[in-house]
Structure formats: C-alpha cells, structure tokens
Nucleic acid binder design. Structure first.
Length: 262
DNA sequence: ATGTCGATACTTTATCGA
C-alpha cells in the first residue's frame, strides 16, 4: 500500500466537518493537510477524526487561517510556526514527522498568504512569508529525508494553471514576482507532484463561489504538493479529486493527493 | 456588471477576507 498524502483547504472545518469525514472515508488518505480551518486550536473537532482512526495536530486561530495535520500514523516533532518572524501571529503553518511503518516522512500543511490587493502591505507580507518558507525549506533539505510541503500556496505557477491568464497578470496569485518566488522554492530541488505526473490543462483545485466559476470550470490550480528528492523518487500518482467541489455546501477548494511508494 | 461564502459583533445587517 502506498502512502497517500492529501491537502485540502476546507474554508472552515466547522462548516465542512461532514464533507471532510465523508471524503476521508472515500479517499482514505494516510495524511491529510487541512487549511483555513477558521477556528481556535481548542475548538477543532479532533474527536470526529480520531474516531476515524487519525492522530490530530492543530494550529488554529480565531476566525481566520488555521491549519491542521491528520495522520493515520503517529506524528512526532510537531512545529506550529514558520521560523523567521516571531511577531507573525497568523496560523498558516504546521509541520510534523509521520512515522509510517518505520519510514519517516516529514509533512507540512501550508496556508500561504493570498496577498491581494497586490499594491498593499498584504502583498509584501506574502512575499516575506515566501522568503521565510524558502529559508526553512533550505534548512529542511539538509536532512535529506522524504519531505512533503503540501497546502494552499495561493500561487498559480504557470499560465496553463488558470482559465484566463491575461486577466490575472496583476493579481497577487499570478504576478511574475509571486511566480518567481515560488520558482525559487521549487529550484531548491523540489518536485511539484501534480505536474510531475500530469501535463493536461484546465486542471484546477479552486473555483470561486461567484459568477458560476465551478459550472464554467473557471478555476485556478493553487493547491500543491512539493516533494523533496527522497519523496519524489517514491511518487507513483497524484490526482485532483473534483467530487467534493461539486457536492452540497462545498469548500471553494477541492482535495489533491499524492501516493508515495512504501 | 454582477454574481458567494464564512466568521464576527456594541448582531439580525454590515464588514472583512478570500
């Protein structure tokens, strides 16, 4: 059995608890990285996931942001902040080592800042956060271990990852500066799992709630799994599961998972 | 052109963030 690592921005775990439990039962991920849980750590519905056989690690925050790791396997070395800025109070990062049948895989659940509007301090915060992520990833690379940085990157890597690239050139998710910062992280030696196995276009992980974006397939591919070489050599599949986005009361994101050989 | 959600509070509608 491969090790399945998934990521899903649920846009409030309170609103999505039923959908999350249903998806977990159907996709049976070993690890699920959640973003935008939008609740404080103590308010996270851990019991519901423990009942499904998962260990739970949460870094929550009132109202906004918030990330979590669910793992069928024991987790160790949990860290709940991206190093590099002690003053940053936004809950956007949690990392842990999953002990899967004796083989350790380090997994992070990432909620990278949106950054819009791009002419404000929100965008400089995004770029600073990406620089911190790069620095931290560079440190993690020294371990030469299987490492998966998964989450909502709020980055459209390439024109083929958005329905209408021309209208997104000034957006914080697609600006050249954003894509360049993402590329800098990739260039440390990561493999972006989806593009490693699938070159098809019009493949998205997010569709805005507005303007019939889902019905028209006007989406964005902004949820990614970045694999260290030790993880990438084990990659056997990566798929976007669109079904939760088409269900009742959906998140605006849908899950994406990668299977690693064990 | 607009369109939608979810959380919050001096709440029952407006504001913010996405």
């Amino acid at each position: 059995m491969p090790l399945r690592i998934a990521t899903w921005n649920v846009n409030s775990i309170k609103s999505r608890l039923e959908a999350a439990c249903a998806w977990i039962k159907s996709a049976a991920p070993d690890v699920l990285c959640l973003q935008e849980i939008k609740c404080e750590t103590g308010a996270f519905p851990a019991q519901a996931f423990e009942d499904l056989g998962y260990n739970v690690a949460v870094h929550g925050q009132k109202s906004y942001n918030g990330v979590a790791l669910l793992s069928k396997w024991p987790m160790d070395d949990i860290i709940t902040a991206l190093p590099g800025n002690e003053a940053d109070a936004q809950a956007r990062y949690i990392e842990g080592v999953v002990m899967a049948n004796g083989a350790a895989v380090r997994v992070a659940s990432i909620y990278l800042p949106n950054g819009n509007p791009a002419d404000t301090e929100k965008y400089s915060y995004k770029l600073a956060w990406m620089a911190r992520l790069k620095a931290h990833a560079q440190n993690l690379f020294q371990h030469e271990e299987a490492l998966v940085l998964a989450g909502d990157y709020n980055v459209i890597p390439q024109p083929e990852d958005v329905h209408n690239p021309a209208s997104w050139v000034d957006d914080a998710l697609f600006k050249l500066e954003t894509r360049s910062a993402f590329r800098e992280i990739i260039n440390l030696g990561f493999t972006e799992a989806f593009r490693a196995v699938d070159c098809s276009v019009k493949r998205y992980t997010f569709w805005d709630y507005q303007a019939g974006a889902w019905q028209k397939n006007n989406g964005l591919r902004i949820d990614h799994l970045l694999l260290s070489p030790e993880a990438a050599m084990r990659l056997i599949a990566c798929e976007i599961d669109k079904s939760p986005r088409g269900a009742e009361k959906p998140s605006d994101h849908t899950p994406i998972w990668a299977d690693l050989r064990t």
